[in-house]
Simulated scan of single mutants.
Amino acid sequence: MPEPASMLHRTLALALLFAPTIADAQLCEGQSAAIAPDGRAFGHLPYGDAPESELVTLPSYYSVGNPCVVRADILPDLLRLFAAAQGDPSVMGQLRALSCQRSIARQRGVFCRGETSSPADRAISVAPPGYSEHSTGYALDFAVRPANGCPDAEACMAATPAARWLRANAPRFGFEQSFPGGNKQHVKWEPWHWRWVGASGSAPGAAKARFVFARARRLYPADPGVLPLVVKVTVQPPVPVAPVVAVPSKKKRR
């Protein structure tokens, strides 16, 4: 029977073997992704499509533009986040879902819109198909209404009260900002893009989401991020035991 460490290495090897096949196909007409030895494409980690059976549609009141589709596990925390923001006057507006789950096929269309630029340049702000957190169903972009002159998915959002509220409060609902400024992935700073990993590892569905993003969270920490659950174990000091003194036996006189 193989050792646990050996099984882990085999699992990782298989993941790296199969994940890049998503992007080995053409990205756009006549273009393909350059796969790094560790499986990344233009700095982005590989992700697969969320199963359709696990997707639900957010009530239209909470979204702008296209219907927002997410994993069912994310929905309770997302609705609680919207309710908390709605009830906090410091938000000075409304938070809405702008872009949620995008299939790999749809991501290809998004990535290929700007074919006048090189794939590497586009990958700074748009992940290649098969390498977007959006395909997992655990990530979404937020928008602010009213926009007050700041276009959606632009850095000016970070200066809004709603974005400041997100930074201060989103982690307690299980959301963390995937691409902070100056991130090591060299991906554009995206104050609007957040992924869900659950406020704690025991939250329903959180273990699966944390598994999906385990590598990203280890290599490229979110900021702000959901802190890992710390379990404190209290060790009782040992009880002193009195030493046992051997009593010499008396020899019988003959």
Rank of each mutant, 00 (worst) to 15 (best):
G93V: 03
A159L: 14
P243M: 04
P37F: 03
V245H: 12
Q26C: 05
T57C: 01
A168L: 13
N148G: 10
K188Y: 12
A105R: 06
A214H: 13
A23C: 13
N169A: 05
W189I: 00
A168N: 10
R10E: 15
A85I: 01
E190L: 04
D223E: 13
A83D: 14
M157E: 14
E3I: 12
I124K: 15
C150I: 11
A209E: 08
I35C: 03
A162F: 09
I104R: 04
P37E: 12
Y138T: 05
V226Y: 09
T21I: 06
W165D: 07
V197S: 03
E190I: 00
V247T: 15
L17D: 09
V70P: 12
N183Y: 02
N148A: 14
A168T: 10
F211I: 07
M92K: 12
M1G: 11
S135T: 12
V56H: 01
A72W: 02
A139Q: 10
K208P: 00
N183T: 02
A85F: 02
A209P: 00
D24Y: 04
K232H: 13
T11L: 14
G39W: 08
W194M: 03
P37L: 08
L95E: 01
S249Q: 15
L98R: 06
F173V: 04
Q26V: 01
K188H: 12
N183R: 05
A153F: 02
S32I: 01
C100T: 01
A203K: 03
C100H: 01
K232C: 06
A222G: 12
P204K: 05
R217C: 09
A83R: 09
A105W: 01
A23W: 00
L229Q: 15
R108V: 06
E176I: 03
P89R: 00
D38T: 01
A153P: 00
P240R: 07
S118N: 08
D223Q: 13
A23Y: 00
E29Q: 08
S53N: 05
L8H: 08
L79S: 06
V244L: 13
A34M: 00
L229Y: 15
K188G: 06
F179C: 11
P4G: 11
K250H: 14
P238I: 13
G130C: 05
P228R: 12
S249K: 14
P221K: 13
N148V: 11
M157N: 07
